Amino acid sequence: MSATLLIPALLLDATMGEPKWLWDRFAHPAVLMGRAVNFADRRLNHGRARHEKGIIAMVGLGLGAWILGAIIAAIPDFGILEIICAAILLAQRSLVDHVRAVADGLRASLAEGRRAVSMIVGRDTAAMDAPAISRAAIESAAENLSDGVVAPAFWFLVLGLPGLMLYKITNTADSMIGHRTPRHEAFGWAAARFDDLLNWVPARITAILIAVSHMQFQAAPILRDAPLHRSPNAGWPEAAMAVVLNISLSGPRSYNGKMQDFPWVWAEGSRTPGPIQIEAACSALWRTWGLLLLITAMAASI
């Protein structure tokens, strides 16, 4: 049943994306989830036992998201609301649009490229040259393909809308409080670890989808370089994208004014990507999405 509902959800998201006219009038569900996380952060993240409070917050947020998903799924409407909710919580079209905007910005000027990439990455962008901007955009494409498309689809297939809602609230919490900062290192621990757990399988599936959709059947480079990433999951889609595009990703970059010397992923690839390579990454996003859609259709036919 979930596979049958996921097919129109994938198609609806790919067609509509996130229409500005709609979300200018109503709060996007991701925004509402963010408000819930912020409320928990403000109310609980103080005083003693912040680690334990963070666990309680994550359990409460996850349970609330699961129950809401279950209520929506129980409405007798032939799955229409589930399809709409799933489409809204998928991010294929919006991801491609944001990544392609970086290529368009770079073609206009270096300043426009920096402005566009600053919308999708958390690193310092003010001093980036064109190759650094391009790498950042391509890395974001690979990582968010997993977080924003494959993982939500996976959990919808496995656990229905409640599973998708649980994944999205966890991923939202991780992006907001799952950082190793003085304020959030203890309180956000549960969100970060649960997000790692929920993304473990989808991240590796994403790497396989990227590779197979590009007829890349040599797993050794991906297996070698994926563990080099500081994240236990993000390295897998990133390594696969680097290999199929023949571009070196990751490497040194600056956060909060401090340069960090991360290792290169697929060091053999080109280190001077530009708008053409960003466009190639957008094509890779669609090829991977197409394979995901095909597999979903096959599952629905069983």
Results as ranks from 00 to 15, higher is better:
residue 245 L to K: 02
residue 252 P to M: 13
residue 245 L to M: 06
residue 262 F to S: 04
residue 248 S to V: 00
residue 267 A to E: 14
residue 268 E to G: 13
residue 285 L to H: 03
residue 288 T to I: 08
residue 261 D to I: 00
residue 285 L to S: 08
residue 287 R to A: 11
residue 287 R to K: 14
residue 287 R to V: 01
residue 243 V to R: 13
residue 287 R to S: 11
residue 266 W to Q: 11
residue 255 Y to W: 09
residue 272 T to E: 11
residue 268 E to F: 00
residue 295 I to W: 09
residue 262 F to G: 05
residue 243 V to Q: 13
residue 260 Q to N: 00
residue 244 V to Q: 06
residue 267 A to T: 09
residue 269 G to I: 11
residue 279 E to G: 01
residue 290 G to R: 03
residue 252 P to T: 02
residue 246 N to I: 09
residue 278 I to H: 02
residue 243 V to H: 10
residue 268 E to T: 13
residue 259 M to E: 14
residue 260 Q to M: 08
residue 258 K to R: 15
residue 251 G to M: 04
residue 253 R to S: 13
residue 259 M to R: 15
residue 297 A to F: 03
residue 280 A to D: 04
residue 286 W to D: 15
residue 276 I to V: 14
residue 273 P to R: 00
residue 294 L to N: 07
residue 286 W to L: 15
residue 280 A to Q: 10
residue 252 P to I: 08
residue 255 Y to T: 07
residue 290 G to K: 03
residue 246 N to H: 13
residue 298 M to D: 00
residue 247 I to L: 15
residue 277 Q to E: 15
residue 281 A to Q: 08
residue 276 I to F: 08
residue 277 Q to V: 00
residue 296 T to V: 11
residue 272 T to G: 06
residue 279 E to V: 11
residue 290 G to I: 02
residue 275 P to A: 14
residue 292 L to F: 02
residue 268 E to M: 12
residue 248 S to F: 02
residue 245 L to D: 05
residue 284 A to N: 08
residue 296 T to E: 09
residue 268 E to P: 05
residue 244 V to E: 04
residue 264 W to H: 12
residue 266 W to P: 03
residue 280 A to L: 03
residue 280 A to M: 01
residue 243 V to Y: 13
residue 272 T to K: 01
residue 269 G to W: 10
residue 279 E to F: 00
residue 247 I to T: 13
residue 274 G to E: 01
residue 274 G to W: 06
residue 254 S to Q: 10
residue 264 W to I: 09
residue 258 K to S: 14
residue 275 P to W: 02
residue 297 A to E: 03
residue 260 Q to L: 12
residue 288 T to F: 02
residue 283 S to T: 14
residue 243 V to E: 09
residue 271 R to D: 12
residue 257 G to F: 05
residue 259 M to C: 12
residue 267 A to R: 14
residue 250 S to E: 11
residue 271 R to M: 12
residue 271 R to Q: 15
residue 259 M to W: 11
residue 275 P to H: 06
residue 247 I to V: 15
residue 267 A to F: 05
residue 248 S to W: 00
residue 264 W to F: 15
residue 250 S to A: 15
residue 281 A to S: 14
residue 263 P to E: 12
residue 292 L to K: 07
residue 284 A to Y: 02
residue 267 A to V: 10
residue 290 G to Q: 06
residue 266 W to T: 01
residue 245 L to F: 07
residue 254 S to F: 02
residue 267 A to W: 09
residue 261 D to G: 05
residue 272 T to L: 04
residue 285 L to C: 10
residue 276 I to W: 10
residue 266 W to R: 09
residue 265 V to T: 15
residue 252 P to A: 03
residue 284 A to H: 04
residue 275 P to Q: 02
residue 258 K to F: 12
residue 256 N to Q: 14
residue 256 N to F: 15
residue 289 W to M: 02
residue 296 T to G: 07
residue 296 T to M: 13
residue 264 W to T: 11
residue 278 I to S: 10
residue 263 P to T: 12
residue 283 S to P: 01
residue 274 G to V: 07
residue 244 V to C: 03
residue 256 N to D: 15
residue 278 I to F: 08
residue 255 Y to L: 02
residue 266 W to C: 09
residue 284 A to P: 06
residue 248 S to G: 13
residue 274 G to H: 01
residue 262 F to Q: 07
residue 273 P to S: 04
residue 268 E to W: 07
residue 260 Q to D: 00
residue 285 L to V: 02
residue 245 L to H: 07
residue 279 E to W: 03
residue 288 T to A: 12
residue 253 R to G: 01
residue 250 S to K: 11
residue 295 I to R: 03
residue 254 S to G: 05
residue 277 Q to K: 13
